[in-house]
């Protein structure tokens, strides 16, 4: 495996309580990698550590050969889609997608406009460029968030609970979009989720965090973990048994 992300002995906690400790894993280039686990196990916090929004208590992270991302210096080598989309409410969808291009490229406005429209078409939001986020549905906001994260052609994208709160049809469409992006652009996708349908459909590999164990309890292909894991917590999660993860 040619890793694009390397995580070693990462420990995180708040106010003297440990959320998880000694978390280590690699994410290969071109992989769709899922971070799984029940509510409160620290999935989103792990993602925030990976993208540099939180500082871990201990451990190392290397992304694309460099160390832990420093968001205060330059352009991060990845895109992030937040759970709510986190679109800037005072800007139109087109302006949201164009923001990174205006800041980090020398493209003229008409070229930026062309790229923005192409990205919006890619995520199925043709005609939404002039709409404000408040005019979009939850699924459309997430799609617009993905378009914004893809604007600068990153080789790595982080998605926080992309299908949470969506209707089943929108969730399936979003999963298909993620698969297409991964296959067509060789994009590495790190996804935080607990939606089983999404996991089996899109994730090639995953890790599972557990609140009680304060760390990773399983790592591997989702189908293999479901069928072969000796750990009842892992089987319970994949088979939707109450009381597990």
């Amino acid at each position: 495996m040619n890793p694009i992300i390397q995580v070693r002995d990462l420990t995180m906690g708040f106010d003297e309580s440990t959320l998880w400790e000694n978390v280590s894993f690699d994410v290969g280039r071109g992989e769709v990698f899922a971070i799984l686990g029940g509510s409160g196990c620290g999935k989103s916090t792990l993602l925030r550590c990976l993208v540099g929004l939180e500082t871990p208590v201990a451990g190392d992270i290397a992304i694309a050969g460099i160390g832990r991302p420093n968001l205060d210096v330059g352009r991060p080598p990845f895109g992030v889609m937040f759970q709510s989309g986190a679109l800037f409410g005072s800007m139109t969808v087109g302006e949201n997608v164009a923001l990174g291009l205006e800041e980090w490229t020398d493209l003229p406005p008409d070229a930026i406009r062309a790229v923005v429209l192409a990205k919006l078409r890619l995520v199925g939001l043709e005609g939404a460029a002039n709409k404000f986020p408040s005019e979009l549905s939850g699924g459309m906001k997430k799609r617009a968030g993905i378009a914004r994260a893809l604007a600068l052609e990153p080789e790595l994208i982080f998605l926080d609970e992309p299908s949470a709160g969506l209707d089943p049809v929108s969730a399936v469409e979003l999963d298909e979009l993620i698969c297409t992006m991964n296959e067509s652009f060789d994009l590495t996708v790190v996804i935080v989720t607990h939606e089983l349908e999404s996991i089996f459909k899109i994730a090639k590999r995953c890790i599972m965090l557990d609140r009680e164990a304060k760390g990773i309890i399983a790592e591997g292909a989702p189908a293999k973990l479901r069928n072969e894991s000796p750990d009842p917590r892992v089987r319970g999660f994949f088979n939707r048994l109450p009381g597990h993860s």
Binding site: V51, G52, L53, A86, F88, G89, L99, G100
Partner: peptide, 18 residues
């Protein structure tokens, strides 16, 4: 404050905007 609670500030940071 609204940008902070709706993760817009985080989004700005991950796009490289201080």
């Amino acid at each position: 404050g609204t940008m902070k609670v709706s993760e817009e500030i985080d989004a700005l940071r991950t796009m490289g905007f201080g």
